[in-house]
């Protein structure tokens, strides 16, 4: 039986796809057979972030509608050989993701994979509901910013009432907070919500804090999941988050700013 993890947020542009790519790559790197599914029908982008956009032949909707088999649609990652990508359809209607169809695909994947990572589209409409419906765990990606925190709270409400686990009165979906684009220097100046502030408002366990980093754009430019940039702070923060997802205890890093010396502050500006 695979563990099903949804990466969700409500708000767009907070880093869901970046996170899905890194978490799935991190799980696979540790030897777990992992598949990452793009649920954003019509606006697929996971393929670009994972650098397999030119290898897409069949997609999720083709499999649901029986036009292709799962093996035909799954794309094997070229860097980590236990990682597979199931791309979203770029041309179909969102409604092509039927509850029964998604369940069939997830059940089939469950037989051979250890982890199924569902990359949710933004919003709370059909695609997002399908992405979270079958989840065992949810990584709620949040920026330290008012609209993102509010939307995350809304998504938490939906996970608690509209997921399969909620409808069937099973154990609730296990929730994790992943705070991304965190800028410790701005937090210290009182310009940005702190980790503690967001934790207090959302009241769910903290999986990790990803510092705002230029590496993230550089990595997406090249189609490299950030977690593979092993020397970078953001890459290491994702690595820690994956370890915690697997139950390891790791101290949180990158939550304070690197203090600049007196001279660099005087002459370069801070």
């Amino acid at each position: 039986m695979a563990r099903i993890i949804v990466v969700t947020s409500g708000k767009g542009g907070v880093g869901k796809t970046t996170t899905s790519a890194s978490i799935s790559t991190g799980l696979a790197k540790r030897g777990h057979k992992t598949v990452v599914i793009d649920f954003d029908v019509g606006l697929r982008n996971l393929d670009l972030i994972m650098n397999c956009e030119r290898r897409v032949v069949y997609d999720f909707v083709n499999v649901i509608q029986g036009e292709a088999s799962l093996n035909q649609a799954l794309i094997r990652d070229k860097r980590v050989n236990t990682l597979y990508i199931l791309p979203a359809s770029q041309t179909r209607e969102k409604e092509a993701l039927t509850k029964e169809g998604v369940e069939k695909v997830i059940n089939e994947l469950s037989e051979t994979f250890d982890y199924i990572v569902c990359d949710s589209p933004a919003g709370i409409e059909h695609g997002a509901m399908m992405a979270l419906y079958y989840a065992d765990e949810a990584v709620v990606v949040t920026n330290p910013e008012v609209s993102s925190v509010r939307d995350s709270d809304r998504i938490l409400g939906i996970l608690q009432s509209k997921s399969r686990r909620a409808e069937m009165s099973q154990d609730p979906v296990k929730e994790h907070l992943l705070l991304t684009r965190y800028n410790p220097a701005r937090v210290e100046r009182g310009e940005m919500l702190s980790v503690a502030d967001v934790e207090e408002i959302l009241a769910i366990p903290l999986l990790g804090v990803i510092p705002e980093s230029q590496i993230v754009l550089n990595a997406s430019n090249q189609g490299v999941p950030v977690i593979l940039e092993e020397d970078s702070d953001a890459g290491q923060a994702y690595e820690d988050a994956v370890a915690r997802l697997l139950g390891e205890e790791r101290e949180h890093r990158f939550m304070t700013s690197q203090k600049k010396g007196f001279f660099s502050r005087m002459f370069k500006g801070g």
Binding site: D153, R189, G190
Partner: peptide
């Protein structure tokens, strides 16, 4: 010296109010 206007605190207070209100309506 540093400016004293702490906008993060304003954000936190506003969020606490709206989130509490929306949670009340959720069910």
């Amino acid at each position: 010296g540093k400016k004293s206007n702490n906008t993060a605190n304003v954000a936190k207070e506003r969020l606490q109010i709206i989130v509490a209100h929306e949670r009340g309506q959720r069910d």
